[in-house]
Design a protein around this nucleic acid. Structure first.
Length: 464
DNA sequence: TTTTGAGTTGTTCGA
DNA sequence: GTCGAACAACTCAAA
C-alpha cells in the first residue's frame, strides 16, 4: 500500500484548526499532506482526558475531519503509543516528513522528543512549530536570563515582543487518489458519554470546532469588548470572551486573537481598553505555560514548599472529608454562589472565571481540602481543561503558587454574590434550591488563617 | 552585590 | 454608609 510519492504527515494535537496552523500550512506547502491524530493511551505520564474534554474532542475531530476533507486532506485516526503508531505507519506508507505544533507539558515534551529521534533514525524529517502559544516559553526571559515567576514583569516583557503575523488557511490540494492507511473509527474511541448521557447541557452550550469560533469572535469584537473590563467579572451576564475552550483545543490561534485585538484597539478607541484587558487575560494563559515549562514539578507539588506542612485534607482520608468534597463537587454546600458555580460546571462544562476563584477559595480555605482535589475535579469536568492553567491557577488560589494570592485573602461567597450577582440571577439560574450550609464561613475562615499561621511558624523554625 | 519598588481578582474592622 | 488600614512578611525583577 505504498503511496506513489512520499507524503507530508501533519501530526495534529491541540491545534484543531486550519487557520494559522503552522504545521499544516508548511506540510501542505511541501507536497501531498495527510493529517494524523493519535489518541495517546499509553505514554508514561500523559494524563487521560477528563470526561468533558473527551466529549469535546469527539465533536472537534469530526468537525476538523470535515474541514480537512474540503482542503483535500485525509485525516487518519490512530490510538495507542505514538512510537508504535508511527512505526506502523512508516510501513504502510512512504513518509517524507512529519510536522507538528509543539506541546509543552513535561510528558508531552518527552513523547515528542522520542518521536523526533525515531524519525531521525528512519531518515524522515521532523519539523516542529510554535502554534499553541504567542511565544515559546524559553523566549521570554528576565534580564538575568532566568524564567519569570511574577506575572506583571512577564507581561511587560511579552508586550515588548513582536507577535508574528498569522498564516492564512492553506490552499486546497486534490484529495489523494490511491489507498490510504486505515483510520480507526472515531466512535470506537468511546469519547462520548453513554447511559446516562450527561452531555446534554454541553451540547446546548457549545459547538466544538473551528467553525463556531469566528461567530463568537465577531460578537466579542462587535459588542462584548466595549464592556469587557467591567462585565467580565459578572457571571450573571454574557460578558467574558468564552473563548477558553477554543484556545484549549487550538480552534483559535492565540496569535490570531492577539493581533485582532491589537487591530481593533487602534481602529476604535472605545474598544481599546477592552482589547487590552482581554490581551492581559490571554497573557495569563501564556504565563501559566511559561511557569509549567520551567517548573514541571508544579503539576504535583506546591511551588512554595512550606505549604507541604499546611495539613490540607486529601480525598479518601476520612468519611467526613469525602462528604465535604462530595458536597462541593455536587454544588450542595449551602452557599448559593458556590453551588451555582459547581452546577454550572456540571451542566455546561464551563464556569465563569470569578466563580472559579470563589469556589476554589471555598474548597481550599473554608473546607481545608487540598487544591489537588479541586484541580482533578476541574480536569474531569471542564471542556476547557488546560493542564498549565488548571494547576497554576489552583496553586494561585491556594496560595502555594509562585505568584499567588496572599493566603489571608479568603473569598466570602455571600459578599461575592452581592457584588457580582446583585440580583441573584446567576444563583437563581443554577442553584435555585438551597440546602443548609455545610460549614460556618466565619469559623472556617478563622481556622484557615490559624492553620496558615501555624504552618508559617513551623517553616520558620525549620529554617533556623 | 546591594538596593529598591512592586506584587490579578479580598474581607473585616473600626473610625 | 464610607473609607482606610490591617492582614505578613517575602520574593522577585531590575537598576
Amino acid at each position: 500500500m505504498q503511496s506513489a510519492s512520499p507524503v507530508e504527515l501533519v501530526w495534529l494535537r491541540d491545534d484543531l484548526r486550519i487557520n494559522d496552523n503552522p504545521a499544516l500550512f508548511e506540510g501542505m506547502k511541501h507536497g501531498e499532506a495527510w493529517a494524523l491524530y493519535i489518541l495517546d493511551t499509553e505514554s508514561a505520564g500523559i494524563r487521560e482526558l477528563g470526561g468533558a474534554a473527551k466529549w469535546w474532542l469527539h465533536h472537534a475531530l469530526k468537525s476538523m475531519a470535515a474541514q480537512l476533507r474540503e482542503l483535500g486532506v485525509p485525516l487518519i485516526l490512530r490510538s495507542g503509543d505514538p512510537q508504535k503508531v508511527f512505526r506502523k505507519l512508516q510501513k504502510e506508507a512512504s513518509i517524507s516528513s512529519v510536522r507538528w505544533n509543539r506541546r509543552y507539558s513535561p510528558s508531552e515534551i518527552a513523547v515528542d522528543a522520542r518521536i523526533k529521534e525515531q524519525m531521525g533514525e528512519s531518515g524522515i524529517q521532523a519539523h516542529s512549530y510554535c502554534g499553541f502559544l504567542l511565544k515559546e516559553p524559553w523566549e521570554i526571559q528576565t534580564v538575568g536570563g532566568t524564567s519569570y515567576k511574577v506575572f506583571t514583569p512577564f507581561y511587560n516583557r511579552l508586550l515588548e515582543q513582536n507577535i508574528r503575523k498569522p498564516l492564512p488557511a492553506p490552499e486546497a490540494q486534490s484529495y489523494p487518489q490511491g489507498n490510504l492507511p486505515a483510520s480507526e473509527d472515531l466512535a470506537s474511541w468511546q469519547l462520548l458519554p453513554h447511559s446516562p448521557n450527561w452531555a446534554r447541557g454541553l451540547e446546548e452550550a457549545w459547538e466544538p470546532g473551528e467553525n463556531a469560533v469566528y461567530d463568537r469572535l465577531e460578537l466579542l469584537i462587535d459588542s462584548i469588548i466595549t464592556q469587557y473590563p467591567k462585565k467580565r467579572d459578572r457571571p450573571d451576564v454574557d460578558g467574558t470572551s468564552a473563548l477558553s475552550p477554543a484556545l484549549r483545543w487550538g480552534h483559535l490561534s492565540p496569535v490570531v486573537l492577539w493581533r485582532e485585538l491589537g487591530r481593533v484597539a487602534s481602529a476604535d478607541p472605545d474598544k481599546a481598553l477592552g482589547c487590552y484587558a482581554l490581551r492581559r487575560q490571554l497573557a495569563w494563559r501564556e504565563f501559566c505555560w511559561h511557569l509549567l515549562f520551567h517548573n514541571p514539578q508544579m503539576l504535583e507539588q506546591n511551588l512554595r514548599a512550606e505549604f507541604d506542612d499546611y495539613g490540607w485534607v486529601e480525598a479518601g482520608e476520612s468519611k467526613e472529608a469525602d462528604a465535604l468534597i462530595a458536597s462541593w463537587n455536587r454544588g450542595e454546600t449551602g452557599y448559593a454562589m458556590v453551588d451555582a458555580g459547581m452546577k454550572q460546571l456540571w451542566q455546561t462544562g464551563w464556569m465563569h472565571n470569578r466563580v472559579r476563584m470563589l469556589v476554589g477559595s471555598f474548597l481550599v480555605k473554608n473546607l481545608g481540602v487540598h487544591w489537588k482535589v479541586g484541580e482533578k475535579w476541574f480536569w474531569d469536568t471542564l471542556v476547557d481543561a488546560d493542564l498549565a492553567s488548571n494547576s497554576a491557577n489552583w496553586q494561585w488560589v491556594a496560595g502555594s503558587g509562585a505568584d499567588a494570592a496572599p493566603f489571608f485573602r479568603v473569598f466570602n461567597p455571600e459578599v461575592q454574590g452581592q457584588k457580582f450577582d446583585p440580583q441573584g440571577v446567576y444563583r437563581g439560574r443554577f442553584a435555585p434550591l438551597s440546602c443548609d450550609p455545610i460549614v460556618d464561613l466565619r469559623e472556617s475562615r478563622q481556622n484557615a488563617l490559624e492553620a496558615y499561621e501555624q504552618m508559617r511558624q513551623l517553616h520558620r523554625s525549620e529554617q533556623s
